[in-house]
Simulated scan of single mutants.
Amino acid sequence: MKPISPLLLLVIAVALAVLGWLAALISGRYSLQTPVLPLTGLLTMGVIVALTLILGIRVLRWRNGKKKKMLNPILAAWTLVLAQACAYTGTVLLGWHAGIFLDQLRLWSVRSGQSITWETLSMAGGGLVMVVVGLVVERFCRIPPEDGDAEGTPGLQGKRGKPKAEGEYAYRGD
């Protein structure tokens, strides 16, 4: 699985900021509600971030040798997928709400209640937290190359694709 490219995340965030800005502009023009997620979405985002961190710390502890028990490889793969999904979801939420916030800035002095603006900022902040946690946990899931490994692929020696021994996987044999 390829690591997430920060440049791709930036492109996604900018594209969704433009879309969010356009959606807020159109909804304001037609007197519709501003398309912002409710603050209860922060609760869901918090649960996702906490779960991602817990699973990521579990993988990190195993990787650093603090756990002697074999880590379930499926759980490690799920943790990596969850971390990447968390980063992408956070990027979408950050971009969308940042675009809406930019639209709300021009109306700051005209509006009496800026609750939408604060909701937008808090949702964008939650998206930023999701991106950071996703990228950090993705780093937790990387296995460092072993000594003497020319290609940098754990569990491989000499020729690419040939395991060191029959039935041996890329894990510490403590």
Score class of each variant (00 low, 15 high):
T52P: 07
A170T: 02
L16A: 05
L43N: 03
L22P: 02
I48S: 15
V18P: 01
T44F: 13
V81E: 10
D147Y: 08
V110F: 05
L32D: 09
L43G: 13
M70W: 01
P163K: 15
N64P: 00
L43R: 11
G113F: 04
G56I: 09
E168D: 05
R58G: 05
N72W: 02
Y88C: 06
L10R: 06
L51P: 00
R61V: 06
A150Y: 06
L42H: 08
G99S: 11
L75G: 12
V137S: 12
W96F: 07
L94T: 08
K164I: 15
G56T: 10
G161E: 05
E166G: 03
V59L: 06
Q84H: 10
V36Y: 07
T34N: 04
E146P: 00
L10T: 11
G41V: 05
R160I: 10
K2H: 07
P38C: 14
P38F: 12
Y171G: 00
L16S: 11
L10H: 02
R106C: 00
L43P: 00
G65N: 06
G46A: 13
I12S: 03
M123K: 02
V18C: 02
Y171E: 09
T40Q: 14
S109K: 13
L22Y: 03
A50D: 06
A77F: 03
W62Q: 10
G173T: 09
S109P: 02
A13K: 07
R139S: 14
S122N: 08
P35H: 13
R160F: 08
M70V: 08
I54R: 15
R172Q: 11
M45F: 11
L80I: 00
A23Q: 01
L75N: 10
A124E: 09
Q114G: 13
W21T: 04
A15T: 13
G65F: 06
D147R: 14
C86A: 13
Y88A: 08
R58N: 08
L37W: 07
T117P: 00
E146L: 10
I4T: 15
M45D: 09
E168L: 14
I143G: 02
L107Y: 12
S115H: 09
A17Y: 03
W62P: 00
N72A: 12
A24L: 04
L53K: 04
L39A: 08
V132H: 06
I12E: 03
V11F: 06
G125S: 15
T117D: 04
S27N: 12
V92C: 12
I143V: 14
L121C: 02
T79V: 04
W62A: 14
L107I: 03
K69F: 01
L39P: 00
A83G: 05
F101V: 02
A170P: 00
H97T: 06
V133I: 15
E146W: 08
L80G: 15
Q114M: 12
S115P: 00
T52R: 11
I48E: 09
M130G: 04
L71A: 14
E119C: 07
Q104P: 00
T34E: 06
L60Y: 10
G95Y: 12
L105H: 03
L53F: 05
E138A: 15
R160W: 07
Q84S: 09
P3C: 07
Y169E: 13
S5G: 07
T34K: 09
V129E: 08
Q114Y: 05
R63H: 12
K159Y: 03
L121P: 01
G148R: 14
